[in-house]
Computed example of a mutant assay.
Amino acid sequence: MNAIPTVTKNLLIINVLVFLATIVAQSYHLDLARYLGLHFFLADDFNVAQLITYMFMHGGFTHLFFNMFAVWMFGRILEQVWGPKRFLSYYMICGIGAGLISMLVTYIRIQAAKTGMSPEMINTVYQEGAQIIRDNMNYTYPPMANLNALLNGVTVGASGAVYAILLGFGMLFPNQPLFIFPLPFPIKAKYFVIGYALIELYAGFANNPNDNVAHFAHLGGMIFGFILIMYWRKKDRGNGYYYN
């Protein structure tokens, strides 16, 4: 791993170690996601530190693998261009930003879910929802179940920061050809990033009840990444490359 820059290498190591710790904890019937995953800010289990810790939690090996593959593939290039301090700042700020955007969208959806529900139903979800999830019970009234899921759901993964990395690569190297399976031809990085953003936007607004992916967290990472890069571009007086 000597060829991998310091921050990228340490991000890979930390994410793998936390994933292994999650597996070990499960053998002792301890759910680390309850403590380290990102809960909605009005939920009983929310802690502000989760805006950082959730980035190092993953829902399974596939989730971890693809996120870390993207960090290795694109993150190391950004770190080599920006340097370790700026790259780490970018990764963390965008990951936190992704969590904030995700909670904002959840708040909006919660307000919409309350429509047509009586105050008694809403209070029941707020007072008992988290305990009901922990006891593996379900509401029989769908609007209450939906509100319960929104209020007590947990977000995990580095995907918000990863999507910011993809955006950063696309902005720094817009015409770099990428071979993306299963496409039989290369696609420029800028079109790759735009395509991913449009897919996430569509999936986010589709709000499929069977889709447990935090699409707006991905978009939130991209939004914060774009703002940071434009700020640095202005600060560095349009150099095209961004140094510490």
Rank of each mutant, 00 (worst) to 15 (best):
I101A: 15
I101W: 11
T106G: 05
T106W: 00
Y107F: 12
I108W: 06
A113T: 01
K114D: 09
K114E: 15
K114L: 11
T115F: 14
G116P: 07
S118T: 10
P119M: 07
P119W: 01
E120V: 06
I122A: 01
I122H: 03
N123F: 04
T124K: 06
V125Y: 00
Y126V: 12
Q127N: 15
Q127V: 14
E128M: 11
G129K: 11
G129R: 11
I133Y: 10
I133P: 02
D135S: 10
Y139D: 07
Y141V: 08
P143T: 00
M144H: 00
M144A: 05
A145E: 15
A145R: 09
N152D: 08
V154C: 08
T155L: 13
V156G: 06
G157H: 04
G157S: 04
A158C: 13
V162T: 03
V162Y: 01
Y163S: 15
I165K: 10
I165E: 09
I165Q: 12
I165D: 08
L167M: 11
L167F: 12
F169Q: 00
F169V: 00
G170M: 04
G170N: 01
L172V: 00
P174W: 10
Q176G: 08
Q176C: 11
P177L: 14
P177Q: 13
L178V: 03
F179A: 13
L183N: 03
P184M: 00
P184F: 00
F185M: 02
P186R: 10
I187C: 00
I187A: 00
K188V: 07
K190C: 10
V193C: 01
Y196Q: 12
A197K: 01
L198K: 07
I199N: 14
I199H: 13
I199M: 14
I199F: 14
L201M: 08
G204K: 08
F205T: 09
A206L: 05
A206I: 05
N207E: 00
N208L: 11
P209S: 02
N210V: 03
N210Y: 08
D211Y: 03
N212L: 10
H215I: 01
F216Y: 06
A217T: 10
A217P: 12
L219F: 13
L219K: 12
G220L: 07
G221H: 04
I223G: 15
I223A: 15
F224S: 11
G225T: 12
F226G: 15
F226T: 11
I229S: 06
M230Y: 12
R233K: 14
D236K: 13
D236W: 12
R237L: 13
R237W: 10
N239V: 08
